[in-house]
Nucleic acid binder design. Structure first.
Lengths: 189, 189
DNA sequence: TAAATTATACAACATCCGTTGTTTATACAA
DNA sequence: TTGTATAAACAACGGATGTTGTATAATTTA
């Protein structure tokens, strides 16, 4: 599950770093839809054909980018190395809300392709995390369905929040929404 | 909200019908990603430029297609003209599961663009439906958050079911999963 | 250090895309 | 029925895509 840090040819590491870096910069200027592979390779000072050696297409690049960004948020809060508590669940929901909000404001939002890839990555990571948490609590109960419901609910709430016209205070929103998620996980406590 | 049946130029109606029809047929042979606008217009016997008069791109076409297909499922079960009961909620979850399963098996599944658009359409329709249901029950309570959680949970469960390697009996799955959705709506009863 | 492996640069390709301008055919209303 | 409006056909464009083949440069291994 962890991204195994294989010994990589330094050229590969360098090239991938250049691509990711160029992409990060471009996202600050343009919407994802408006970014072409050419843009990325020009800014990265990389040949276009080289790009395709490392990524299937620009969507795979975004996928990788989101994976890194969100994993960083999770790890910086040590959520990946703790266990379930109502408070940690609250922090998780907050994290997802803030991440989506940041991504939505920083990177000029572009509907078509951007959001679904964000969703897939974030939702998966939340799902995996919940599975670990629940598995620790009661190893005899099946966690799949509860983790699925909770992961989708959490992302849905965060998405709802980040889309809201006039957003309420985040804390207030989380206070109101959290019980709806927590109620499904109580059976494991 | 309802797709207003405007009086349309018969040429328009004919062309859109041809496009939707060609697209339906193509989905049975190819994955969505593999279908090009050219494919559609060739099969529809339509000029490619004409296509762009009616749809922004092939994703907009899929969007429209899903909207029609799923709305049909909802309406054929009269879910849009009834009110909340635990049993209707059950039917709704079943409907989404069956729809996703059908789509997944009929149309050769293609990850990248197909699923997200299905999700957006289906989830929105479920959300709107739940808002109506909940609004009827207790007009004083705010429905947004509950409807959001429930809509995401329902779609997530259906997605989980349709992705499962060895799928359990649908009825069994729904029996197990339904309470996790229903518990969030009980405050309205 | 020398030979091998492998990444990148470069150029060229067919394909699809979305758009534009013009002409022809169809629908509708006076 | 005739005039007007508008949809569709057609052709052509610039641009991005993804792929391929060859040459060069860097890294690793022996």
């Amino acid at each position: 599950m962890l991204p195994i840090e294989e010994k990589l040819d330094p050229r590969v590491k360098r090239t991938r770093g250049l691509i990711l870096g160029a992409f990060t910069n471009l996202l600050a200027e343009k919407s994802f839809d408006a970014i072409s592979v050419q843009d990325v390779t020009e800014k990265a000072q990389i040949n276009r054909a080289t790009f395709y050696k490392h990524f299937l297409d620009k969507y795979a690049l975004l996928d990788r980018w989101v994976e890194q960004q969100f994993r960083q948020e999770i790890e910086s809060r040590v959520l990946d190395a703790c266990h379930y508590t109502p408070d940690n669940l609250r922090i998780l929901l907050l994290t997802v809300c803030e991440f989506l909000f940041k991504v939505r404001t920083d990177c000029m939002q572009s509907q078509r392709q951007f959001e679904p890839l964000i969703e897939k990555q974030v939702k998966n990571q939340v799902y995996e995390l919940l599975n670990v948490w629940l598995g620790k609590m009661n190893p005899h109960l099946s966690t799949e369905i509860s983790a699925t419901v909770a992961a989708w609910a959490i992302y849905g709430l965060a998405s709802h929040y980040s889309h809201a016209k006039k957003l309420p205070a985040l804390e207030k929103f989380v206070d109101e929404a959290l019980p709806l998620v927590a109620v499904n996980l109580e059976q494991f406590a």
